[in-house]
Structure formats: C-alpha cells, structure tokens
Simulated scan of single mutants.
Amino acid sequence: MSTLEEHVDVSVPLDRAWEGLHRIEDYPRFVAGVRDARAEQAGRTHLDIEAGGRSREIEAEVSDRREQHVVEWRTTGAPDLAGSFSLQPIDDGHTRVQARVEYDPGALRDAFGGPRGFAQATAIERLVRSDLEHFKDCVEQGR
C-alpha cells in the first residue's frame, strides 16, 4: 500500500469545515470524478465515479471520531482504498484539513487506468491536492 498525505488551510471555523466534509451530496462539487454521492444507512456512502474513461460505483464505510475531528473511510470492494480527513483548528476562523489516502497502485490502475509508477503517484498527489483546493473554495464560499 502507498500512502499520501496532503493538507489545506481553510478560512472558516472548524465546525463549518466539519459540516462541509459531512455533506456527502456535495462531493461532486469538489472531488474530481465523482458524479454522484449519497449517504446511506449504517455509515455507508455510495459514490458514482468516472476516472480514466471508466465508470464505477464504489461503496465506502465511513466512521466519525467527532471528539478528535476525524472522519475515516474505507471502500468495501475493489479498488481497495482507505483514508481519513482530520481537522485541526488554527484559530477561531481558520482550520487545517489534513487528507490521508492509502491505496494499492496496481489495483487503482486496474480499476481506472492511467500511468504506472512515479507518474501514477504524481497524478494522484495532484488530484488530492486539487480536490482539497476545491473543498477550500466551496466551504469558504458557503456552497
């Protein structure tokens, strides 16, 4: 498994950033490739994704550790992905959003295509960084 960690500082209080992460239906606004997202029963989330010219439906289990301001998730089928978002207050009006993604590069390539090796890692890093920047824009604009 490979691990990627990225963060972005947002100009909103921690509670507002937390709420933004929990509006699953808004994920298509800031997560590249997500065409539809919905929360389901028992901490499950359903995502319709298009990446590398391929469409997939992905189910994930999501759990909150609200007292630590952490959301953890794991796909329930292929591709095997896991990760977390942790929020850290910087001050009353600013929050750091830390994203951590664990993935199997081969399984991800099999599922969605794309480059191999270092090029794949670089592409995933750019994608996660871009998604965090889009989240920042959405949550700061109140969308």
Results as ranks from 00 to 15, higher is better:
Ser63Val: 15
Arg65Gln: 12
Arg65Glu: 13
Arg66Trp: 09
Glu67Asn: 06
Gln68Lys: 14
His69Glu: 08
Val70Tyr: 04
Val70Thr: 03
Trp73Val: 00
Trp73Leu: 08
Arg74Met: 10
Arg74Trp: 07
Thr75Arg: 01
Thr76Phe: 03
Thr76Met: 09
Ala78Gly: 12
Pro79Ile: 10
Leu81Glu: 08
Leu81Arg: 14
Gly83Leu: 04
Gly83Phe: 06
Ser84Asp: 01
Phe85Ile: 03
Phe85Thr: 05
Phe85Glu: 04
Ser86Gly: 15
Ser86Val: 05
Ser86Gln: 15
Ser86Glu: 14
Leu87Pro: 03
Gln88Asp: 11
Ile90Gln: 06
Ile90Asp: 02
Asp91Met: 04
Asp92Ser: 14
Asp92Val: 08
His94Ala: 10
His94Tyr: 01
His94Lys: 11
His94Gly: 00
Thr95Cys: 10
Arg96Tyr: 10
Val97Gln: 02
Val97Gly: 00
Ala99Gly: 01
Ala99Gln: 12
Ala99Phe: 09
Arg100His: 08
Arg100Trp: 01
Arg100Asn: 03
Val101His: 05
Val101Ile: 11
Glu102Val: 15
Glu102His: 13
Tyr103Ser: 06
Tyr103Pro: 07
Asp104Gly: 10
Pro105Thr: 06
Pro105Lys: 02
Gly106Asp: 15
Gly106Phe: 05
Gly106Ala: 13
Ala107Cys: 03
Ala107Ile: 06
Leu108Arg: 06
Leu108His: 09
Arg109Trp: 11
